[in-house]
């Protein structure tokens, strides 16, 4: 499919393993950091918003409600940021291999996208503990979760295909990207409910794929609802479009990688 075969999937899996290992190579705790880092981050948010600021969402009795609501949105976002960054720098970072070995380089951004799955796993586990503690355990609507995760990563890797190829020619991208992602985060109702946006902008948020993802997570885990099917379908087609065009652009450009790297 899309010009990939079984062997490519294995190579992608190998590249994913290497990616995870390489990130913490030389540190004494190694891959433990892959779990520890998101965990500390979430614990920090829980502390700040649960005990310091004591933010409450309307109708909630405890501050824990806001923390859970926040983390359902922010946890997946954290995974998204990590994955987009990793996948954007994946081709430039593997310059040595790209210049010297003939293989399907498009597997680099694709496999790099999946590093986000670790921090997503940590977030979901953390959430589950928190929700159990708050007495608001997800019901059967949790079955939507695998589909949402799949759609989230489909979007990420499609974006990654574009950005990783562009980054080879315009290196400024990977420098500007962290700030751009922070801006996107604050434009997306992740830290605040959508209702606090101006009415005109609220409508626009439905065109924001990152909001669609956050909202789908919130629906299935916190609101005990099925996520908006229109939202998910839109998300799928947007990702598919980005994926097909990104793959085509990547394949056109990859012949020039060795002179640009």
């Amino acid at each position: 499919m899309f010009g990939f075969n079984k062997q490519d999937i294995r190579l992608a899996f190998n590249l994913f393993k290497m990616n995870v290992r390489d990130r913490y190579l030389g540190s004494s705790l190694g891959s433990f950091w892959a779990i520890a880092n998101p965990f500390f981050m979430l614990a920090l948010y829980t502390f700040v918003f649960g005990f310091v600021f004591k933010v409450r969402i309307p109708g909630a009795e405890t501050t824990l409600g806001y923390v859970i609501w926040l983390i359902i949105g922010y946890g997946p976002w954290m995974a998204t940021v990590e994955a987009i960054m990793a996948s954007t720098t994946s081709v430039v970072g593997a310059a040595g291999v790209v210049k010297n070995m003939a293989f399907k380089t498009e597997l680099l951004p694709i496999s790099a996208s999946f590093v986000g799955i670790i921090s997503l796993g940590v977030s979901l586990f953390f959430l589950l503990v928190l929700m159990t503690f708050a007495g608001n355990v997800p019901d059967w609507h949790i079955v939507w979760l695998p589909l949402i995760i799949m759609l989230q990563f489909f979007l990420i890797l499609s974006i990654g295909l574009w950005l990783s190829a562009i980054n080879v020619f315009v290196r400024d991208l990977s420098i500007a990207l962290p700030n751009m992602l922070t801006i996107i985060m604050f434009l997306t109702p992740i830290f605040y409910p959508m209702e606090s946006m101006p009415a005109a902008v609220q409508k626009l948020s439905f065109a924001n794929p990152f909001f669609l993802i956050a909202d789908a997570y919130r629906a299935s885990l916190e609101r005990h609802q099925s996520p908006s099917s229109i939202g998910l379908i839109c998300l799928f087609f947007l990702s598919l479009m980005l994926f097909i065009s990104g793959l085509a652009a990547f394949r056109r450009a990859k012949g020039f990688f060795d002179s640009a790297l």
């Binding site: 062997q7 490519d8 294995r10 190579l11 190998n14 590249l15 393993k17 290497m18 390489d22 190579l25 030389g26 040595g96 291999v97 210049k99 010297n100 070995m101 003939a102 293989f103």
Partner: peptide
């Protein structure tokens, strides 16, 4: 193709581990 030797070698890994890494890059 063999263009440059040792492109995937990681300095922090042992020789043995590097042989596995190299195999992984080749999709083995």
């Amino acid at each position: 193709s063999v263009m440059t030797l040792g492109v995937g070698v990681r300095d922090d890994l042992t020789g043995r581990e590097n042989i596995y890494v190299d195999g992984e890059i080749q999709g083995k």
